[in-house]
Amino acid sequence: MTSPVPGQESSAPGAAPAASVSPGAQTLLQLRGVDKHFGAVQALYHVDLDLPAAQVTALCGDNGAGKSVLTRCIAGIHQPDRGEILWKGHPVHIRGPRDAAELGIEVVYQDLALADNLDIVQNMFLGRERVHRGLLNEDSMERAAADTLRNLKVTTVRSIRQPVASLSGGQRQAVAVAKAVMWNSKLVLLDEPTAALGVVQTRMVLDLVRTLRDHGLGVMVISHNLNDVLQVADRIAVLHLGRKVAEGPATDFDLQSVVEYMTTGSSHR
């Protein structure tokens, strides 16, 4: 069904090892000089970024900094105007969500992208339904969805056959995350996973993020809540007006410096 990603096989002799990633951690995804504009709006300007496995990278930036656009470029929804994307060192062209999924990249969008009229199982398998002789294999999908939710310690939903419309914000987020990690994914991008969540539900989602990392997945988290970010992040990158202005281990940053980078694009520390 899915066409192989062109360029995936070609080796890239020039791919430089990531500078800011601690040795030992495998770099899953690298952006090199990515530009993206919409008409006159330059949303991304020459962005470099490394996303290693088994680490949580936080992407910070003020409203309109380009975080969501960057996510959508990785997910194949937008095509970068210039620059390249490397997957495990090899240049790839991600032409759509299927290409991204093929590589092992899954995205949880800011608006979650769940269909309210479908139930939890139907949403988790949307676009990848299991079929048996042409008919949907509901039993097998339901069992797999239940297993995934259990593995992620999501226990608050009453029935996995209830429509997503009937879930609370945190439960919806959990379903969206579970949907993303069901597929043997290697890199998960979370856009604002804790926005609009209460204290308990936020904690639940952050625990979920740690669980993913402990399973060896690469995670990129976008959040405006810097307290949350600093709690879970191993690495931090900051965007300011479409430019990446800082990137490094979380220990190099504190709340003050991240805020300075986000608002002014530089820090005096």
Binding site: A75, G96, P97, V107, Y109, A115, N117, L126, R128
Partner: peptide, 12 residues
């Protein structure tokens, strides 16, 4: 019918 964006992002 429920959410065209979700469908698009699911690769439909």
């Amino acid at each position: 019918g429920g959410n065209p964006d979700a469908a698009r992002r699911a690769g439909i």
